[in-house]
Amino acid sequence: MLSLKQVSKYYNTGSNKTYVLNKVDLDVDQGEFVSIMGPSGSGKSTLLNIIGMLDQPSEGYMYFLNEPVHQLKEKQRSALYKQNIGFVFQAYHLIDELTVYENIETPLLYQDVKSAERKALVADALDRFNIVGKKDLFPAQLSGGQQQLVGIARALISKPKLLLADEPTGNLNSKQGEEIMELFKKLNQEDKVTIIQVTHSEKNAQYGSRIINLLDGKIDSTVIL
């Protein structure tokens, strides 16, 4: 479903180019659970952002669901992204001014989903993640684990085919982290959601089906579990 060909990302520092990603080739199939690992500065987050279309590569081609993303216009890319990709962040990035319910609902608003359908979908998600009782609370009133749960519910509300997670357990304690990883595994196996996660933790990486190790902007090794 996803294919990167010779993707590079660099910054001009003076007359030199500093490469963050250097000619990366990567293919991800439907239903995979990929973990990207590597030391700080190896380009993990940049790779994830490029896959998530938050960032654009300096060079190279990228195909998503057989669409050439590098050729698409902003509007088409945005539409493709809206319907198919969900994002989960280390810092949760919930909107402070919105309640749990409204945070989960927001992506649907941007996709012009009808009010009745929105209600049903959000109610469903609240139910599924066991946060019905928290729906009227604001993010500041929740624990880190609960906030991340809301973040995941929000990422999944529009039924994306691909879920991207940037160190989803980075700010959580080990027990909360474990619960989130169990949830990811379940989503991957039962709901067939393709997941790509960036992680520092060897243990969390084991939940996936493939581990990609990055070093200095290049794929250093790939381990299939």
Partner: peptide
């Protein structure tokens, strides 16, 4: 700024 960023990742268009 952060709110704007988050909204963008949630699929918000410029006009929205």
């Amino acid at each position: 700024a952060r709110e704007v960023g988050v909204r963008k990742t949630l699929g918000a268009g410029k006009w929205q």
